[in-house]
Amino acid sequence: MTRESHAADEILTPEMRAEIDRWIAKYPPDRKQSAVLPALHICQDSNGGWLKREHLDAVADYLGMPRVQVYEVANFYGNFFLEPVGRHKINICNNISCMLRGADELIAYIEKKLGIRRGETTPDGRITLVMEEECLAACVGAPMMLVDGKYYTDLTPEKVDEILDSLE
C-alpha cells in the first residue's frame, strides 16, 4: 500500500550522493530540501547538461520532497534543461538594455548562422540556443551572451562568428 520508490537508489551514484550530502550539511537538518538546486546541478552535470525525469524523481526522493515540487523548481529556472542539449549552451540576452543595443538583430543573425531557432539544438549536437534569456546583469556590455557560463559582451556579428567558430 505504500509508495515504494527506488529512483534515488538507481540514479544517484555514491559520488553524487556524497556531493549532495555536503550541500545538505550546510542547512538545518529539517531543511534538507534547501539543497535542491545544487542537487539538480550535480545531476545535470553528470548527464551531459540535461535532466531526465528520473533525475528529478531521484532528487525528490533523496531530499524527501514531493516530486511535483522538484518539477516546479526544475521548470522555473532557465538553467535547468529537461531535454537533451548540445555540447555548448548559448544564452543570448534579450532584455531591455540588450534589446536597445541590437540584441534582436543579433539573435536573428545567430539563428540564421546556426540554422536553428532559440530552444533548439544544431543537428550535429554541437550548440543549443537557450529558449529565452532575461537580463543577465551585464547591461554595461550590452548586447551580450553567455557561452557555457562564460560572459561575452559588446557583441558584433564578427565577434559572434569568432566565438561560435571556435566551439568544437
Binding site: 511535483v68 515540487q69 521548470n75 522555473f76
Partner: peptide, 24 residues
C-alpha cells in the same frame, strides 16, 4: 498540499508559461 496532504499538482514554468499540472 496543505489540506489534502498529497502534493499532486504544481505550478510549473515561469511567468507567462506558468502552468498548473501534475507534470507526469
Amino acid at each position: 498540499h496543505e489540506i489534502g496532504g498529497q502534493r499532486e499538482l504544481g505550478a510549473v514554468g515561469r511567468g507567462e508559461h506558468t502552468k498548473i499540472t501534475t507534470y507526469i
